[in-house]
C-alpha cells in the first residue's frame, strides 16, 4: 500500500522536508510511519497527527492511499 506523509511547522524544519511517501505491506500504523520517516526518532509527547485531514489519537492502522500529517500543537488565532 502507498501512504502520503506531510510535515508542518517545526516538524517540517526538523525533518528537512514538507512531504514524503512510503510503500509498505498492509498493517502499517502511524507509529511505523513516524519511525520510518524520522529515522527512528522518539515520537514527541506533544506531536499531533491527522489522517486524511482529521485529527486522530492513539496509533491507528492506515489504509492504502491515506495521507498522514505530523505537526506540533497549533497556535492560530
Amino acid at each position: 500500500m502507498s501512504i502520503k506523509v506531510k510535515f508542518f511547522a517545526r516538524m517540517r524544519e526538523e525533518l528537512g522536508r514538507a512531504e514524503d511517501a512510503m510503500e509498505h505491506a498492509a498493517g502499517l500504523k502511524v507509529s511505523d510511519v513516524w519511525r520510518e520517516m524520522s529515522g527512528g526518532r522518539e515520537m514527541p509527547d506533544s506531536l499531533l497527527v491527522a489522517i486524511n485531514m482529521e485529527h486522530v489519537k492513539g496509533d491507528p492502522e492506515l489504509k492504502d492511499g491515506d495521507e498522514v500529517a505530523f505537526f506540533p500543537p497549533v497556535t492560530g488565532g
Binding site: V74, T75, G76
Partner: peptide, 21 residues
C-alpha cells in the same frame, strides 16, 4: 480555532525567529 485548527505562528524577534509554542 485556537485549540485545534492547524495554524502555526513563527515570530521574528531581535535575535532571529522562533515558533510560538
Amino acid at each position: 480555532l485556537k485549540h485545534k485548527a492547524p495554524f502555526w505562528k513563527k515570530e521574528t524577534v531581535k535575535n532571529g525567529e522562533r515558533w510560538v509554542e
